[in-house]
Amino acid sequence: MQKSLNQLPVTLEVPGAKITSEAFGDITVAFTSLSKGTDLAPLLEGLPHDHCQCPHWGYVMKGKIRIRYQDGTEEVTEGGNLYYWPAGHTGVVEEDVEFIEFSPKHEMEHVLQHVKAKLEQAAH
């Protein structure tokens, strides 16, 4: 099976953020676009340790994001970088960023459902 990025269904879209994703077997492939200043921490509140518990492997096509880990360490991932973000992270977008990532399907579904619920709460 093959698809182009523009064939992936929109999973989540709010001002400043868009995630399109689809499961391929046990892996979820996602294309994510986030605006400068986006802080993921409020969306992850309520998950264990208030951090994303899904590991991700990917490639940043453009922009810059600062990843913060549960242990307090940080790293900046920017355009042209391949990355691995283990479970236990959050992030703040330093420059408009676009990345494609690969994640375990079940863990990613759990995180996306949590984020959607947080956004629905905020809308009311």
Rank of each mutant, 00 (worst) to 15 (best):
residue 63 G to N: 00
residue 63 G to V: 05
residue 63 G to P: 03
residue 65 I to N: 04
residue 66 R to Q: 12
residue 66 R to W: 02
residue 67 I to N: 00
residue 67 I to H: 00
residue 68 R to K: 14
residue 68 R to V: 00
residue 69 Y to A: 04
residue 70 Q to K: 15
residue 70 Q to A: 13
residue 70 Q to C: 00
residue 73 T to E: 04
residue 73 T to P: 01
residue 73 T to C: 00
residue 74 E to W: 04
residue 74 E to F: 00
residue 74 E to S: 02
residue 75 E to Q: 13
residue 75 E to V: 09
residue 75 E to G: 09
residue 75 E to S: 08
residue 76 V to A: 09
residue 76 V to P: 00
residue 76 V to G: 11
residue 76 V to L: 04
residue 77 T to P: 06
residue 77 T to F: 00
residue 77 T to E: 12
residue 77 T to H: 01
residue 78 E to N: 07
residue 80 G to M: 05
residue 80 G to K: 08
residue 80 G to A: 02
residue 80 G to H: 06
residue 81 N to D: 14
residue 82 L to A: 12
residue 82 L to Y: 13
residue 82 L to C: 04
residue 82 L to I: 12
residue 83 Y to G: 06
residue 84 Y to Q: 06
residue 84 Y to C: 05
residue 86 P to K: 07
residue 86 P to I: 03
residue 86 P to M: 03
residue 87 A to T: 06
residue 88 G to P: 07
residue 88 G to A: 13
residue 89 H to E: 06
residue 90 T to M: 05
residue 90 T to L: 03
residue 91 G to W: 10
residue 91 G to E: 10
residue 91 G to D: 03
residue 91 G to R: 08
residue 92 V to C: 08
residue 93 V to H: 05
residue 93 V to I: 11
residue 93 V to T: 04
residue 93 V to Q: 07
residue 94 E to Y: 12
residue 94 E to K: 15
residue 95 E to N: 14
residue 95 E to Q: 15
residue 95 E to P: 07
residue 96 D to I: 05
residue 96 D to K: 11
residue 97 V to W: 08
residue 97 V to Y: 10
residue 97 V to E: 02
residue 98 E to P: 08
residue 99 F to I: 12
residue 100 I to R: 13
residue 101 E to H: 14
residue 101 E to A: 14
residue 102 F to E: 11
residue 103 S to A: 11
residue 103 S to K: 14
residue 103 S to R: 10
residue 103 S to E: 15
residue 104 P to C: 12
residue 104 P to Q: 14
residue 104 P to Y: 08
residue 104 P to F: 11
residue 104 P to A: 14
residue 105 K to D: 05
residue 105 K to E: 07
residue 106 H to N: 15
residue 107 E to D: 08
residue 107 E to T: 13
residue 107 E to N: 06
residue 107 E to L: 15
residue 108 M to H: 04
